[in-house]
Structures are given as C-alpha cells and as structure tokens.
C-alpha cells in the first residue's frame, strides 16, 4: 500500500543530501557552497510547508500533528514488538518530524543573518543586521546545529529500532513509498501530480527573493 507519495520522498532525500552537503561545506570552510546549500534547504522547506497543506494525506500536517494524549498513548505501547501499521506518521514520529522541520527552519533563518568573526563571510541577509546581531546569529547557528545533530541521531536510531526490534522496515517505505499493511487500513489519499507545481514555484520564488532582491549573495 502506498504510504509516502513521490514528492514527499523526493523532499526527504533531497533534504538529507543537502543537509549533509551544508554540513560538509561548512566544515571545509567552503562558505560559498554552504550558502547555496542553505538556500536549497530553504527552498525545500518552503515546498514541504506547502505540501503539508496541499499534498497527499500522509504528508499533511493535520494528519500527523497529534495532541499530547495520542502521543502518550502511542509512547506507552512503543515497547510492544508488533508493528502498529500507521499509514504515514505515528503520533510520536509526527512530533519528531515537526521538531526537525521547525529546527531546520530556525537553522536556515539564523544562517541568513550569520556573520563570521572577521566580517569576511556572511549570510545573504546579514547586511540587514549589525555585526553583533550577526555574530549572535552565527553562535546560535552553531548551537542549533548541535540540536539538529541530536535529533537526526534520534531519528536514525528510531528507524533502526523499528527495523530490528519491531521488524518494521520504515526505510524501504521512505525509499519506495510502499509498505505492507493489513488491507483493512484506509489507504492514503494521494494528491495529483500537477499539485507539485505551485509548491516548486513558491520554493523558487522564496530562493529568488532572498538571493537577489533582499540579499547580497
């Protein structure tokens, strides 16, 4: 049964590769590439925000943002070895997805305004803020990176936990889109392909706005 539509999977893996690229380029001091990676992630996040309202049912925020009760109920049953067969996010992973997306959005926003200690390298919107504010943004960028790294570790560990403890292959679902679930489950409502286009336009417009109109990159 189809769980994740193609745009959601493409977003996920593009985000993974761009995040790794952003990390690597920062570590190597290749800040021009780091800025490009950051803008690409910004575009991806804009698309995902749009897809959270216009995408297939499993990609929509109202589908996977659940109240605390649902999260607690699910968390209490987490140790059970039988898979719960959620079509899409379970209440706990929905929470994790929101946390990851929010933290990434914060990270991109901070990067836009960040300035290095020498005033040599800076984010594309840094000329809108003072040196001190830019430095604060850069220092917070560093802290948020640590938080993101922890959250990603938790995410990957959770996938491994489901694979080895619950015998539930979530990785394959995110790669191929399909998952074996009992036929009694209501299938995901898939969005038509054309609906990707407005999201791509929005993402492109956001990148263009920051890179050329507001920015100095």
């Amino acid at each position: 049964m189809r769980v994740w539509d193609l745009p959601t999977r493409a977003f996920h893996w593009a985000l993974v590769s761009m995040s790794l690229f952003a990390w690597g380029s920062a570590e190597l001091g290749e800040l021009a590439w780091h800025r490009r990676a950051g803008l690409a992630i910004l575009g991806l996040l804009v698309f995902r925000l749009y897809w959270g309202f216009a995408g297939s049912s499993t990609a929509r925020f109202h589908h996977f943002i659940r109240g605390p009760r649902a999260v607690i109920v699910y968390a209490r049953r987490l140790h059970l070895r039988n898979p719960a067969y959620h079509i899409g996010h379970n209440p706990l992973s929905g929470l994790g997805a929101v946390a990851l997306l929010a933290l990434l959005a914060l990270q991109v926003a901070l990067g836009l305004f960040a300035v290095d200690v020498d005033g040599l390298e800076s984010g594309p919107l840094s000329h809108w803020v003072s040196f001190d504010v830019g430095r604060l943004a850069a220092e917070t960028h560093e802290i948020v990176f640590g938080a993101l790294a922890m959250l990603v570790t938790l995410h990957v560990s959770a996938i491994a936990f489901y694979a080895f403890y619950k015998r539930d292959n979530l990785l394959e679902a995110m790669l191929r889109g399909d998952r074996c679930v009992p036929e009694t489950r209501t299938p995901a409502h898939l969005a038509p392909h054309w609906r990707v286009l407005p999201g791509l336009l929005l993402a492109g417009a956001a990148i263009w706005l920051i890179a050329t109109v507001l920015g100095s990159a």
């Binding site: 300035v115 800076s122 840094s126 000329h127």
Partner: peptide
C-alpha cells in the same frame, strides 16, 4: 580590536553589496 575590525569590514562589505 579584531572584533571592531570585523565589524568595520562587515560595514564595508554590506555597503558594497547593495
């Protein structure tokens, strides 16, 4: 001094970027 220099250099670059 270096922090100030960083700030001044940012000011130059910010202006020239506009």
């Amino acid at each position: 001094h270096f922090k100030d220099l960083g700030g001044s250099f940012k000011a130059v670059r910010d202006q020239l970027a506009t």
